[in-house]
């Protein structure tokens, strides 16, 4: 399986926060959800990948090219969407097209116009007059209109209502129909990622906790529920994280089938990405 984005041992130190030894791979043709709580390091990682922030150490490759040596070549082939619109208030879509035409070699005016029409974005209004959802769709339209092979979105759906978010997810799924294309989508809205991600990479406190296929996560992890006495019977190595309630314990376990055999009679429920993350983070605190 070809890798379109390779991050190796990326590190960056700030005063109050540091990113340590971040590594993961995005296989070509897939969507990877990059998830973590606010402040975990998602945006920092993406900025490091894009060389917007100077790294301390590590290596990043896209399309097999080095992100610093072949920076311009890479950036012709990627589309980036940040969480806020970065267009000046007084610009209109045709102004944006005028600018982009002279930045990207592969800028496609017809494609841009098509996206504007599909997304129902008014051509005669300025960015200032656009709603938040419209601004985001405009950013996406811009990112898609130079035929990129890799899309990087940083919290692009945060702050949008469910209807717009759904529309955007559909746009992303359409984009990925061509298996030469890939998407890295960072978000703290796990339900969105559950809908479209093939892989999930979880970052917490500047470190990667896991990076695996979403299916495996959903099928393998489970929440085991038991009483206070029974909790003591569970071996420490089986506990990924736990939550103590007034009437019992909830334990996140890996390899559900094994656990079902090992701890007969215990309730083991299906889980979702949000819970897996919560337990990883909370489990640490306890």
């Amino acid at each position: 399986m070809e890798t379109v984005l390779e991050v190796n041992h990326l590190s960056k130190q700030f005063d109050t926060f540091s990113l340590e030894d971040v590594s993961f791979q995005l296989p070509k043709g897939s969507i990877m959800g990059f998830v973590g709580e606010n402040g975990a390091g998602k945006t920092t990682t993406i900025k490091l990948i894009l060389n917007l922030i100077n790294k301390n150490s590590g290596q990043v490759k896209m399309f097999g090219l080095d992100h610093m040596k072949d920076e311009k070549q890479i950036k012709e082939q990627i589309g980036v969407v940040f969480d806020n619109s970065h267009f000046h208030d007084h610009l209109r879509p045709d102004d944006i097209a005028k600018i982009m035409r002279n930045i990207f070699q592969n800028w496609d005016d017809a494609l841009f116009t098509n996206y504007l029409k599909t997304f129902k974005l008014p051509l005669n209004k300025t960015v200032k007059e656009y709603s938040k959802g419209m601004k985001m769709k405009l950013s996406i339209a811009t990112a898609l209109s130079h035929h990129p092979k890799l899309l990087l979105l940083d919290e692009a759906t945060s702050g949008l209502d469910p209807i717009v978010r759904n529309e955007i997810l559909d746009i992303l799924l359409d984009f990925i129909q061509d298996e030469e294309r890939s998407i890295l989508l960072s978000s703290h809205i796990t339900s969105d990622l559950e809908k479209i991600a093939d892989y999930i990479t979880f970052i917490h406190d500047g470190k990667i906790v896991f990076s695996e296929s979403k299916d495996e996560l959903i099928y393998e992890y489970g929440i085991m529920k038991c009483g206070i006495e029974d909790f003591k019977k569970i071996s420490k190595s089986d506990i990924v994280g736990y939550r103590k309630g007034q009437f019992g314990y909830e334990v996140l376990v890996r390899d559900k089938k094994e656990m079902e055999k090992k701890y007969r009679g215990f309730v083991i429920d299906h889980t979702n990405i949000e819970e897996i993350i919560l337990f990883h983070v909370r489990g640490e605190e306890q």
Partner: peptide, 10 residues
């Protein structure tokens, strides 16, 4: 995958 809203791996 898109229509069923599942992962392409599935």
């Amino acid at each position: 995958a898109k229509e069923l809203r599942v992962s392409v791996i599935t």
